[in-house]
């Protein structure tokens, strides 16, 4: 199913403009992620698509050619995974998964077959008769997913499905979820404020800020070609190199950096993996922090730009704190973005 939103906005009764008029299309079978900082309107947008929130007049929501703008949530045939999972405590795992099928009045033998199929897909066969109070966080998440998917919804909506889990579990389940969602072969929208999560799971990411979608595209596109400072910072944590540009040279506190093109008004950003510590570097800074991360070190360097510049160092040893180091940045790796295109 293709989801199409036009001119969709939401103003809450207290005057909060949680969502400014937006356009959004999610193609059949695509997994779209809504990514943005807290309070940017992700949940609001998801709830509007589900029918749990009424959008402002003038908004239009289409499921294929079906205008569902005025349809009640119970008639929309959406699957929703809530942040808290919202499993029914009065039912077993099986009861939870079968609830949507019961509402559809599916014949018992068909319903049972469907429940078994979903249980197997989500690896919950052994837990089918358990009470949901006797499940771990990860198991609950799978039950919530199974329950949402069992009635064959037209679209699957997930609101930060991993945020209720421990950090260590989150990474494992993130990849598991990505595999599972593709197995379902369903149009899905996935809300998160964690860019790594969005990158790992989604086919396409829409970055949101202050109630608008500021940029959308594949994870690669967003990472390599951010169109604004906000996206550059939010996706892949780009760091600002603030200095004065003149022609193809950027003069920083720590030296002069070559630029790939003539630049005057724009802002220059760089990512940690493109900041190399090397003897031939043209920039000079002082090591502030070193963090050992197993496969690599993270080095914080001050004195080059006004903020601390982070560098990823793959070597066996790291410089000491307080050492003066030379840094080189390949001009082609720099991100040059319009100034003031997006104010924070």
């Amino acid at each position: 199913m293709t989801l199409h939103l036009t001119n969709t906005a939401k103003t809450f009764s207290d005057g909060t403009r949680a969502l400014l008029p937006i356009e959004l299309t999610v193609k059949t079978g695509e997994i779209m992620s809504l990514l943005g900082p807290s309070g940017c309107g992700k949940t609001t947008l998801l709830r509007i698509i589900a029918g749990l929130e009424t959008p402002d007049t003038g908004s239009q929501i289409f499921f294929d050619d079906d205008d569902v703008t005025l349809q009640q949530v119970e008639d929309r045939k959406v699957g929703m995974v809530f942040q808290s999972y919202a499993l029914f405590p009065n039912m077993s795992v099986r009861g939870n998964i079968g609830y949507g099928l019961k509402m559809q009045k599916l014949a018992p033998d068909k319903a049972n077959a469907r429940i078994n199929e979903v249980l197997e897909m989500c690896q919950l066969e052994k837990l089918a008769l358990r009470s949901i109070k006797a499940l771990s966080g990860g198991q609950r998440q799978r039950v919530a997913l199974a329950r949402a998917i069992a009635p064959r919804p037209r679209i699957l909506l997930l609101d930060e499905p991993l945020s209720a889990l421990d950090a260590s579990l989150r990474e494992v389940l993130r990849d598991e979820l990505a595999v599972l969602l593709r197995k379902f072969n369903i149009t899905a929208i996935f809300v998160t404020h964690d860019q790594a999560e969005a990158m790992a799971i989604a086919d396409r990411v829409a970055v949101m800020d202050h109630g608008t979608i500021v940029q959308s595209g594949t994870p690669e596109e967003l990472y390599r070609n951010p169109q604004s400072m906000f996206v550059a910072k939010f996706v892949g944590s780009a760091m600002l190199l603030d200095g004065s540009c003149k022609g193809k040279k950027l003069t920083l506190a720590g030296g002069v950096q070559d630029l790939p093109k003539n630049t005057t008004d724009e802002l220059v950003f760089v990512r940690a993996e493109d900041v190399h510590i090397s003897k031939k570097g043209s920039l000079t800074g002082t090591v502030q922090t070193t963090t050992f991360l197993g496969t690599h070190y993270r080095i914080g360097i001050s004195g080059i730009a006004s903020g601390v510049l982070t560098s990823i160092l793959a070597g066996q040893t790291a410089p000491n704190i307080g050492d003066t180091v030379k840094v080189s940045i390949n001009p082609e790796a720099l991100l040059i973005l319009p100034n003031g295109a997006h104010k924070e």
Binding site: E74, V78, F82, F88, Y99, M103, A148
Partner: peptide, 11 residues
């Protein structure tokens, strides 16, 4: 939220 979950399942 429990009611919203039930609603999304068609109740």
């Amino acid at each position: 939220t429990l009611e919203e979950a039930a609603a999304s399942l068609g109740a």
